[in-house]
């Protein structure tokens, strides 16, 4: 809207009046809707649930995470070479962040960067939450040579090497699964000996 320079005064004021009205209209619209943006905050509550804050404490016993034995203590004798099972620290199953995969392999199978001091009698444990998008990882057992079994997330096929500190072998996961220390106690049940070494859950 360019002002006409013809000197017709009435027309000029009409145009500027239109401009002012338009300005007021747009300004109030922007103001009204802008203040409504504050509602976004109200609509986004800080409800807890998905965040991964593990609460594993030294000495917590491991219990089965699922199946008929869910909640009962895990005994070393239950797992043979090449077996793996999902487990929680006892009494802390409400928190998905505590979910771990306990794996038993031959003791000499482990190589760095696996923390050997956090393994015991061939038992090693990693966070079971995929570092890609948070699905629970599964165990793909090689029946003929158990040491080449691996951990896979069935959601987008990230593959982790349990003998090398759950290093990412393939797929979209950005970082390894965090190791957590376990040992076999005198009565044959498994205990945690550390918290997670490194970040757990989706790296977003």
């Amino acid at each position: 809207m360019v002002e006409k320079s013809s000197g017709n005064k009435g027309e000029k004021t009409a145009i500027s009046r239109r401009r002012i009205t338009l300005g007021i209209l747009l300004g109030s619209l922007a103001g009204a809707f802008g203040s409504l943006l504050a509602l976004l905050k109200v609509l986004s509550p800080e409800k807890k649930g998905g965040g991964y804050e593990a609460t594993i404490v030294l000495g917590d016993r491991l219990v089965y995470a699922q199946g008929e034995k869910a909640g009962t203590p895990l005994r070393a004798a239950a797992l043979k070479d090449g077996d793996a099972v999902l487990a929680y620290p006892v009494g802390k199953a409400q928190n998905q962040a505590n979910l771990i995969q306990l794996i038993r392999l031959k003791e000499k199978a482990f190589k760095p960067p696996t923390r050997l001091d956090l393994t015991d009698q061939g038992f090693v444990a990693y966070s079971a939450i995929c570092t890609h998008l948070g699905c629970t990882v599964s165990w793909v057992k090689n029946q003929t040579s158990p040491d080449t079994s691996f951990t896979e997330c069935f959601c987008h096929n990230s593959i982790f090497d349990p003998t090398r500190g759950a290093k990412v072998l393939g797929g979209p996961a950005p970082i390894p699964l965090a190791q957590v220390g376990v040992k076999v106690a005198e009565d044959g049940v498994l205990l945690f000996t550390s918290g997670f070494i490194g970040p757990i859950g989706p790296q977003v």
């Binding site: 609509l43 409800k47 649930g49 998008l133 959601c155 989706p202 977003v204």
Partner: peptide
Amino acid sequence: SIAYYVSKSVPWIGGGLSRLLFSGEFPSD
């Protein structure tokens, strides 16, 4: 849950966006 983490992964606004869409973290009530 996958969609939740995808929305959370959006740079800069992911945290707020995921809380707005999923009404807080997922899985929450």
